[in-house]
């Protein structure tokens, strides 16, 4: 008689092998081309800011979880992603205390207080950037390129300035702006990787970028509409926001219809911020506002169950 007893557990008994950690690792890989571009454009300073931000995020999470005797989750790499995204949204000339304070704010105030990964209702990197903007507005809007003060392409575009860089320069990324947002090419390469790896789906980036393009094209106030619309999507933080931030799992809808609403909502708001607001940007606040609508969007976009007769 065999009296061995075996483990009893609920099905399924096999797993695909994709973990939170492997997903976050893919996001980091996807952000590497933009990191390289930022170091080429803004030199070593860009790297220092990224490192400071990442270290602050990871240490912030570690300290919080140790203090409150929670399971330490820094090895899921999500704090690293937050750190990179925060640094990417900062001007390269910020003093070094900015990424440190920003990183700690993102992780403790925006993420851990609400219960950690999966529980926050705002994107930590963006909420922290908004906090930094409100607290240190001067350093947060000071743009430099090669050590010389400059304006961002969007500001130049709004002012119809003759110094506007060419579309190609904007696409490649040799322009003023936040650390990670300058190279549209690098961001698109990373986005394609994320789509290929099934880390993100196309609905939010395409509907977000598409609606900004369409609105800019339709309501163009300077130059040819097509060129103007291309500037609007390649310049500024739109690609960084649409590909890497509006798609943040925790703060975007899980339903397909919801993703379109999220993307279009972000697009419309970004366009309004850029045209009606006094700021040339608008991606950060647009996504944060849409974050707040996510629970409501999900409630109203529950997909039709197979066999459901309405």
């Amino acid at each position: 008689m065999n009296s061995n007893t075996y483990l009893e557990s609920s099905s399924p008994h096999i797993h695909q092998g994709i973990s939170t950690k492997s997903i976050m690792r893919d996001v980091i890989i996807a952000l590497l081309p933009a990191l390289v571009a930022s170091i080429i454009v803004f030199k070593i300073r860009a790297l220092i800011i990224v490192v400071l931000s990442v270290v602050s995020c990871v240490l912030g999470e570690l300290l919080w979880q140790k203090t409150f005797k929670q399971k330490v989750t820094i090895d899921d790499l999500s704090a690293v992603v937050t750190g990179i995204l925060l640094a990417f949204s900062l001007p390269p000339s910020v003093p070094y205390y900015i990424p440190v304070i920003g990183g700690i704010f993102a992780i403790i105030i925006v993420k851990q207080i609400f219960g950690g990964i999966g529980k926050n209702f705002l994107n930590p990197a963006l909420a922290s950037r908004a906090f930094l903007m409100a607290t240190w507005p001067a350093v947060m809007t000071k743009w430099t390129l090669d050590g010389i003060s400059t304006a961002t392409p969007l500001e130049l575009l709004n002012n119809a300035s003759p110094n506007l860089p060419s579309l190609w320069e904007v696409f490649i990324g040799y322009t003023g702006g936040s650390i990670g947002e300058t190279s549209a090419l690098a961001l698109i390469i990373g986005g394609i990787y994320l789509l290929y790896r099934n880390v993100i789906t196309w609905e939010i980036p395409v509907s977000y970028i598409g609606s900004v393009f369409l609105l800019s094209f339709l309501f163009c106030n300077t130059g040819t509409p097509f060129i103007f619309a291309l500037y609007e999507i390649f310049a500024g933080g739109l690609l960084l926001g649409a590909i890497y931030m509006a798609t943040d799992y925790t703060t975007s809808p899980v339903t397909k219809k919801g993703k379109f609403i999220m993307g279009i909502g972000c697009g419309v708001l970004t366009f309004l911020f850029r045209t009606i607001g006094q700021t040339a940007e608008g991606v950060c606040y647009s996504i944060l506002i849409m974050n707040l609508f996510v629970p409501m969007i999900e409630r109203h976009t529950i997909p039709r169950t197979f066999g459901e007769v309405k």
Binding site: I23, G115, I117, T250
Partner: peptide, 12 residues
């Protein structure tokens, strides 16, 4: 088990 990160894979 870890926290749900709302990735939406289960939905898809």
């Amino acid at each position: 088990e870890e926290n749900c990160i709302r990735c939406g894979r289960c939905v898809r």
